[in-house]
């Protein structure tokens, strides 16, 4: 018998694994993150702050916040409705419905933008009708909203469905047998049990809504000050070789995603059951 426990790796294996992981994660995750801040601060804090506060940058920040403010409540309503239907009831075609909810995750973001161009673009299904009525969806804010709704569609639902399935229907049935109506049951019995999972889904949805690039890029038209979200603004500045500007706005987005990760980590620490694999 060797003195070390049979389920422990030898020290050199541990050292080898940890160094490989350290090198790999540095190259892929850590250095890119650090480089964003380094590039942003290349000429000091002043120019970076200046780049973040140009009118175009401010407009892009506002539009990004607006997008998230639309996408998140929509996602909550859809997610709770879908989870309520799927987890608390039996019906034919349920597993198909669950698969269909996940579809946006397997569609390229570019295709997500393309489909709305085909429907609402000037050559699309409703193109001439929209032009006649002077309604702009593509290359305008509504298109950005739609594309964002599409790419964030499954976030809350796929967080809540397994959680609510696991919790079963006992408490809701108990509430019903005591005379509670549907809304009362949802609000007083179900919601307290799913709030952390809901918050987790909202965090991820919010991060994606603020950060979406591909889908939004296709429908936005890149009109400065009007239809540029923060990620699109980063692209424009970058393509104009305004690296300090691009990386400064990018740094702002980085801070946002670090905040998301910290909140997510806290949530997982306090409520371990919320963690789900594979987003």
């Amino acid at each position: 018998m060797s003195p070390r426990s049979s389920t422990q790796d030898p020290w050199w294996v541990k050292a080898l694994v940890l160094s490989l992981v350290a090198v790999f994660l540095s190259l892929i995750l850590v250095l890119p993150l650090v480089s964003v801040f380094a590039e942003a601060l290349r000429q000091g804090l002043g120019p970076a702050l200046e780049a973040m506060s140009t009118p175009d940058a401010i407009a892009s920040i506002k539009l990004t916040l607006l997008t998230a403010a639309v996408a998140v409540p929509f996602n909550i309503v859809f997610g709770v409705a879908a989870a309520w239907a799927v987890a608390k009831h039996e019906f034919w075609g349920k597993s198909l419905l669950i698969s269909l909810i996940d579809v946006p995750f397997s569609v390229s973001p570019v295709v997500a933008g393309l489909i709305y161009v085909l429907i609402f673009g000037s050559h699309g299904w409703f193109g001439s009708w929209l032009i006649d009525h002077n309604i702009k969806i593509i290359f305008a804010v509504p298109g950005i909203m739609l594309a964002t709704l599409f790419v964030t569609f499954p976030f809350v639902a796929r967080e809540l469905i397994p959680l609510m399935q696991e919790q079963g229907v006992d408490e809701e049935e108990a509430a019903a047998s005591m005379g509670a109506g549907g809304w009362t049951t949802l609000w007083r019995v179900t919601t307290p049990n799913i709030r952390w999972g809901l918050l987790y889904g909202v965090l991820l949805c919010n991060a994606r809504a603020m950060g979406e690039f591909g889908a939004v890029s296709v429908v936005s038209g890149h009109i400065r000050g009007l239809t540029n979200t923060m990620p699109l603004h980063v692209e424009i500045l970058y393509n104009e070789y305004d690296f300090v500007g691009a990386f400064s706005v990018a740094a702002l987005l980085c801070l946002l995603s670090i905040l998301t990760l910290i909140l997510k980590g806290l949530l997982e620490m306090l409520q371990p059951q919320v963690r789900r694999a594979g987003h």
């Binding site: 006992d170 408490e171 108990a174 047998s177 019995v189 049990n193």
Partner: peptide, 28 residues
Amino acid sequence: AAARKVGFVFQQYALFRHMTVAKNIAFG
């Protein structure tokens, strides 16, 4: 179920986890 005025005790009790005992009892 709500209209029948029955009291139902579930096998696994189905107590509301986030409510105190008193709140559970008062729920109905």
